[in-house]
């Protein structure tokens, strides 16, 4: 369970990214955070695993008060939270399976990491993760030979191999074409339904958010302006979140 209690974030340049955010996300939810770029989506998401630290308020994740932990404790805490990025953030010059295995490095000792040693169990579990996202057969080729959609699947497999309780996805489909974007979103849904992992996605495309997520959080200028089931979203609410009519770019799937 993730609990934001009056959380605020002010950057050192004085820019206020979050103001008095309060919300609760239960285990196993599929949440999409929508809003204009610069509205604070990314800050909200990244504060959950303390990639960004908050300046005020209380943030509890599975009973851990995030602002209180650092160093070793923080790293241990992060092992239970997976993260997926817009630009995939794979190590392109190494094989797919090494990328997946890299999420297990946190638990290993430095020498094993230095020599790239992984046990049979770890390799099998990495292959299972690749199988879940449907690219088992790509395991031994170099990551830079994959298409964008396949790269994002590898990134997802890397996160799954970590056995997380929560997956945070920061604009995971923004660099993909519409068909790829939909199928990667389906992967997220499948994982969420089958394994009860909480999935929180920052997303620019409203239609993808409405189609795949169960719950929508609309954020504008650092404040939550909507929080509810995706079924309750109306055009008026979208106008409020975006401060204007949404444009075609944000409406990726045309109403067909």
């Amino acid at each position: 369970m993730i609990e934001f209690n009056n959380v605020s974030k002010v950057y050192s340049n004085g820019c206020k990214a979050l103001s008095n955010v309060s919300l609760t996300i239960e285990q196993g939810e599929f949440v999409a955070i929508i809003g204009l770029s610069g509205a604070g989506k990314s800050t909200l998401l990244r504060s959950i695993n303390k990639m960004h630290s908050i300046s005020d308020g209380i943030l509890n994740v599975n009973g851990v008060e995030v602002s209180k932990i650092k160093g070793k404790e923080l790293r241990k805490f992060r092992r239970n939270i997976g993260m997926v990025f817009q630009s995939f953030n794979l190590v392109r010059r190494t094989s797919v399976i090494n990328n997946v295995l890299s999420s297990k490095a946190a638990d290993k000792n430095v020498l094993e990491v230095l020599f790239g040693y992984y046990s049979k169990e770890e390799k099998i579990s990495a292959l299972e993760a690749l199988d879940k996202v449907g690219i088992l057969e790509k395991a031994y080729i170099r990551a830079d030979q994959l298409s964008g959609g396949q790269m994002q699947r590898v990134a997802l497999a890397r996160t799954l191999a970590q056995n997380p309780k929560i997956i945070l996805a920061d604009e995971p489909v923004a660099s993909l074409d519409p068909i790829m974007a939909s199928s990667v979103m389906e992967d997220f849904t499948k994982i969420n339904k089958e394994t009860n992992i909480t999935v929180i996605i920052n997303i620019h495309h409203v239609d993808l958010a409405l189609k795949y997520a169960d719950r929508i959080i609309g954020i504008r200028a650092g404040e939550i302006v909507f929080d509810g089931p995706s079924a309750n979203i109306t055009d008026d609410i979208l106008t409020e979140i975006y401060g204007r009519e949404i444009n075609d770019d944000e409406r990726m799937i045309k109403n067909d």
Partner: peptide, 25 residues
């Protein structure tokens, strides 16, 4: 720097993150 950030998000320390994410590049 993306892969390094990704390694940090999995809970790796800087040494492991550097070796896995930066050295291959």
């Amino acid at each position: 720097n993306g892969p390094f950030e990704a390694m940090e998000s999995t809970g790796s320390d800087k040494v492991k993150a550097t070796w896995i994410a930066i050295f291959p590049q």
